[in-house]
C-alpha cells in the first residue's frame, strides 16, 4: 500500500500530459515501424537479410558510416581546439568566442546549406576566387561528392562538439596541471599525460553526440551531395515518399535507432547526459 502511494506521487500528475502524448503519438508509431521491419512485405527477417544481399544497400550503409566517422573526428578535433582556447583565455575574450559559437549554432541549417551551395558550386565563389588568383586552372569539384558533404557537415557539427568539451574542461581542477609542471614535466608532457586523459570523458561524449547527430543527418547530404552521395536518411525518405517501400525503410530506421540507443547508453556511462544537453538536472 505504502509502495503504491509512493509511486503515485502527486508530481506525476504534472508529468502525465506530456508523457501520455509521447507514448501515444511518438513511441507508438516508432514501435509500429519496428514491427513493420519484420512484417512488411512478408513476416521474417527478409528486410534485414537484404543488407547483406543488396550491393546498393551495403554501399549506402558504408558511405553513411564513413562520412559519420570522418565528420566526428574532424569536428571533435576542431572543437577541442576551440574549447581549449575558450577555457584558457580571459573572461572577456571567452564571452566573445561563446557569442560567435552560439550565433553559428543558431543560424538556420537551410541558410547555411544555401551558403555552401553559393560558395562551393562549380562556378561558386571559392572556385572563382582560386581561379582569379591563378591557383587553379580548372574548377575543383567541391559539390556532388563526399568532400562537399563533409565540409557542410563538419561546419554544422563543430558547435555541438564544443559544448560537451567545454563542460568537461571547465570542471577540471587546474591545480593538477600546475602540480605536474612543478614536478618538472614540460608543457607538452603535462598536456599529453595529464590534461588529455582528464578530458577523455568530454572527448567520448562529444564524439558520440556528433556521431549520433550525423547518422540521421538529412539536409546537408541531400543538397551538397546532389544525389551522388546517398546516406541512410536520404535513402529512407526516397523509399517512403517515392517508392513506398515501408519494409526496407523500417529496417534501416530500426538499425539506426538501435545504433543511436546503444551509443546513448555508452555515453551515459561517461557523462551525465543532462550535462551534455545543457541542463543540470
Amino acid at each position: 500500500m505504502n509502495a503504491i502511494r509512493k509511486s503515485l506521487h502527486p508530481g506525476w500528475l504534472l508529468v502525465a500530459p506530456f508523457l501520455l502524448l509521447v507514448i501515444a503519438l511518438y513511441l507508438g508509431p516508432i514501435l509500429n515501424i519496428l514491427w513493420l521491419s519484420v512484417t512488411d512485405p512478408e513476416p521474417g527477417m527478409g528486410n534485414y537479410r537484404k543488407l547483406f544481399v543488396s550491393d546498393s544497400l551495403l554501399r549506402i550503409f558504408w558511405t553513411t558510416i564513413r562520412i559519420c566517422l570522418i565528420t566526428t573526428v574532424g569536428s571533435v578535433l576542431l572543437g577541442y581546439s576551440i574549447a581549449y582556447a575558450m577555457v584558457h583565455c580571459h573572461q572577456k575574450q571567452k564571452s566573445y568566442m561563446l557569442t560567435l559559437l552560439l550565433v553559428s549554432f543558431w543560424i538556420s541549417i537551410l541558410v547555411r546549406t544555401f551558403s555552401w551551395l553559393m560558395l562551393l558550386g562549380h562556378r561558386g565563389l571559392v572556385n572563382n576566387a582560386l581561379e582569379g588568383m591563378g591557383v587553379i586552372s580548372e574548377p575543383i569539384a567541391f559539390m556532388r561528392n563526399e568532400l562537399g558533404v563533409l565540409i557542410g557537415m563538419i561546419h554544422y557539427m563543430i558547435p555541438y562538439a564544443v559544448l560537451p568539451l567545454l563542460v568537461n574542461m571547465q570542471s577540471l581542477d587546474m591545480r593538477v596541471m600546475d602540480a605536474s609542471r612543478n614536478l618538472g614535466a614540460s608543457g607538452q608532457q603535462t598536456f599529453m599525460r595529464v590534461y588529455l586523459p582528464l578530458t577523455l570523458p568530454g572527448i567520448v561524449a562529444s564524439s558520440l553526440l556528433i556521431f549520433i547527430l550525423s547518422l540521421g543527418f538529412y539536409v546537408t547530404p541531400a543538397v551538397l551531395g546532389g544525389g551522388k552521395v546517398l546516406m541512410i536518411a536520404e535513402y529512407i525518405s526516397v523509399q517512403l515518399l517515392v517508392t513506398l517501400k515501408w519494409g526496407t525503410a523500417a529496417m534501416l530506421a530500426g538499425l539506426m535507432l538501435f545504433g543511436v540507443l546503444a551509443m546513448l547508453y555508452i555515453m551515459s556511462r561517461f557523462m551525465k547526459l543532462s550535462a551534455v544537453f545543457g541542463g543540470s538536472a
Binding site: P29, I33, G216, Y218, I236, S237, L240, A253, L257
Partner: peptide, 13 residues
C-alpha cells in the same frame, strides 16, 4: 532520435 525516424513515425500515424 534522428529526425528522419521521427518524421517516419509522424508520417505513419
Amino acid at each position: 532520435i534522428p529526425q528522419i525516424i521521427s518524421a517516419m513515425a509522424f508520417y505513419r500515424l
